[in-house]
Design a protein around this nucleic acid. Structure first.
Lengths: 224, 224
DNA sequence: TATTAATAAATAACCAGTCATTTATTTAAA
DNA sequence: TTTAAATAAATGACTGGTTATTTATTAATA
């Protein structure tokens, strides 16, 4: 991640070389995530967070004005890729001639992929633990991640029902059936999984889950 | 918030001071749950917990030796009814001639009922937030609640497969499909639900969920 | 040198847990 | 029955340790 150093001396113009790397705030957030998750927000010590980034306590205040600001930045950082992904996919549903079931499968698989990344999957767990202290943050996450995701999924569900591909169902509840297993896996990994055991395979879980869900929601059809 | 007067005779009630009732530890735990959930374990103040029970700080130490002890007692209190319930039900599966699907439905409905009780449903959320600080507690909950529940459900699933009632599936994953929606609802209620909106109906959600799940897992049959 | 980055030390709150003291209730002597 | 110990329950000021944030100082770069 180093920029080309001042091998080419340029005194006045060009990108200024700084010891402060661009990635510094990100590195601090990485440490913050680790500490927030393992000690809780109140229990996490700034000094420990700094240590993860190879800095001393005071230095993190050059990048974040407070502990709370770190938490907010952490959540913000995790949110963008998710909502983008979903609205993007949903926008293409009606255009192509894919089956709704395939679109749905694809969405869940992509989501599973995202959330299997610790940096993204840990955030909902953090919010669950801190929602009482930071209700605005929980509300933000609800809107930007959960409701955006639900909306995208419900769109496809309704589309599938409309087409006669899916049985009639209430998408408001069906979406919870669909997302629940994924959430459960995220929580399992971040809370209950032990080091000494074979981890649950996201891939197999999602495959099994989609198999049951699709079988449960598809209308029996002669052929297509 | 005054005491119900003593059963024996007493002429005047002095509001300032109350005799130690048997229920006192439970009242303290109720307050602890509220504070732990809204501030996190580290952020919760003993004085606030005490206030919920109408006591002063020092008094809670007559009942619990430390904050950590309160947390442990809180989890312990919530655990017993759950595991009892499940092992009890599972034990009766093979005896009667119910369909596996009906047994499963019943189990999920009973579980939903239990977890819709705030005192029980809040505990997994608490553990998710504090698993890093109290790994033994997370492990305890995993074994006593999650694995006990999973085991009971998987028993019924395997029974249903064996009977030819259910399609072949891997119970290890199917149980996650089944429990996930319930977990999602618990988290929704405890983390993201707003006061200004119609709450999601457990009953309707579970009905929809079971409908999809059963439809997804049942073998098509002529008649029964 | 001037400026920015980083640090280490200092400050100011905060709060778990303790304990000397107060208050209600019970016991039993008068 | 009245009254005065004795006991049980509850209190809240206080202590000690911890840590977020600020400030003074040093180091590195342009």
């Amino acid at each position: 991640m180093q920029n080309e150093t001042n091998s080419e001396e340029d005194h006045k113009s060009a990108p200024k070389w700084r010891r402060k790397p661009e990635s510094r705030p990100d590195e601090i957030l990485d440490g913050a995530l680790i500490e927030f998750r393992s000690r809780g927000f109140a229990g996490a010590r700034i000094e420990d967070i700094a240590k993860h980034a190879g800095l001393s306590k005071g230095t993190v205040y050059l990048y974040f004005s407070s502990k709370e600001e770190m938490l907010k930045a952490l959540v913000r950082r995790s949110v963008l890729p998710i909502s983008e992904m979903f609205t993007d996919i949903a926008g293409h549903v009606q255009d192509n001639n894919k089956k709704a079931a395939d679109v749905l499968s694809q969405m869940i698989q992509i989501a599973a992929n995202k959330f299997s990344n610790h940096e993204i999957g840990s955030i909902p767990l953090l919010i669950i633990g801190e929602a009482g202290n930071f209700p605005e943050l929980a509300e933000f996450y609800r809107q930007e991640v959960i409701e955006a995701s639900m909306k995208a999924i419900m769109t496809v569900l309704m589309f599938g029902i409309q087409k006669g591909e899916f049985r009639k169902c209430n998408p408001k509840y069906a979406v919870r059936t669909l997302m629940g297993a994924l959430l459960m896996q995220v929580i399992w990994d971040g809370t209950f999984a032990r080091d000494d055991e074979e981890p649950i395979s996201y891939e197999e879980l999602i495959q099994s889950h989609l198999d049951i869900f699709m079988n449960g929601i598809l209308l029996p059809q002669e052929n297509s």
